[in-house]
Design a protein around this nucleic acid. Structure first.
Length: 264
DNA sequence: GCGACAG
DNA sequence: ATCTTGTCGC
């Protein structure tokens, strides 16, 4: 892949902000960047195309066929990547952050932060079309390919079995896990109050994920496999990455970098 | 028709 | 997601 000039900026948290290869994602053939306009529409008379749900759903169904729900570890995990997105106050710009941590110790190795125009509205079930393009660029800007990516959103616990974690995992072909803060679909009981307790998240008669307690007495998180992943491994990874707080360190650090109020 | 609805 | 400080409780 052709790489753009290496750009380094900022030094917040002592983290690198290196951005390589800022090319746009090629995974939206029918919907090149801007085909829906920018969101929200700029004051004046900028037109935004209505989202053709049938076509977008078709793209999800198509990509869903590439999801693999088995593991493919090439040895022990060495790195875990956290990704998250934040928005400008007026909602017109999206900031994507990718942070690479050492799996053991969870120390930060490097991070990439970049901004882009928002080109898709927020629609439950279509979050990945709004955030994946920018997150994809951020992850590809890292100096090395992560062994696994933890996403702030659902994996297969999704209306069409293709949440943000699946989308990112597939287009990057990297194992991924979805760790969402709230439920999108499915039913479940309350997991026991202790850390590590979990109950199945069921949807349409299938177990699509787990409602996992990462911290005693605190609201659980919704874990589901994204790509090249199994639920047991997803749960173990989540617990490993969330040793002290409700959310995984991966997500917490990516969030700190992507939050608009902080940073730039 | 009436809710629900990742971030 | 974002607008926003202190405050009640373990």
């Amino acid at each position: 892949m052709v790489s753009c000039p290496v750009r380094t900026a900022g030094r917040e948290n002592g983290s690198d902000r290196i951005s390589r290869d800022l090319s746009p994602s090629p995974f939206f053939p029918d919907m090149e960047s801007g085909s829906f306009g920018r969101y929200p529409p700029r004051a004046g008379s900028e037109r935004t195309h209505p989202v053709p749900l049938d076509r977008v759903h078709a793209v999800q169904e198509s990509l869903r066929r590439r999801v693999r729900l088995d593991e493919d570890w090439r040895g022990p995990l060495r790195t875990v990547c956290g990704v998250d997105a934040g928005y400008s106050p007026d909602g017109s710009r999206i900031r994507a952050a990718a942070v690479l941590l050492d799996y053991e110790g969870l120390t930060t190795r490097e991070s990439v932060v970049l901004d882009d125009d928002v080109a898709f509205p927020y629609i439950p079930g279509l979050l990945s079309f709004r955030e994946a393009p920018a997150l994809w660029r951020a992850v590809r800007g890292l100096g090395s390919v992560p062994d696994v990516i933890l996403c702030d959103g659902q994996g297969i616990a999704h209306p069409r079995g293709f949440g943000l974690a699946c989308h990112l995992g597939v287009i990057l072909d990297v194992p991924s896990v979805g760790v969402a803060k709230s439920r999108l679909v499915g039913c479940h009981e309350d997991p026991a109050p202790e850390r590590g307790a979990w109950v199945p998240l069921r949807y349409k008669g299938k177990m699509v994920g787990a409602v996992l307690r990462t911290r005693a007495g605190v609201r659980p998180v919704y874990v589901s496999a994204g790509h090249r992943m199994t639920l047991p491994t997803a749960i173990a990874l989540t617990l490993h990455c969330a040793p002290a707080f409700r959310l995984p360190e991966t997500t917490r650090r990516a969030h700190a970098l992507a939050a608009w109020s902080t940073g730039r």
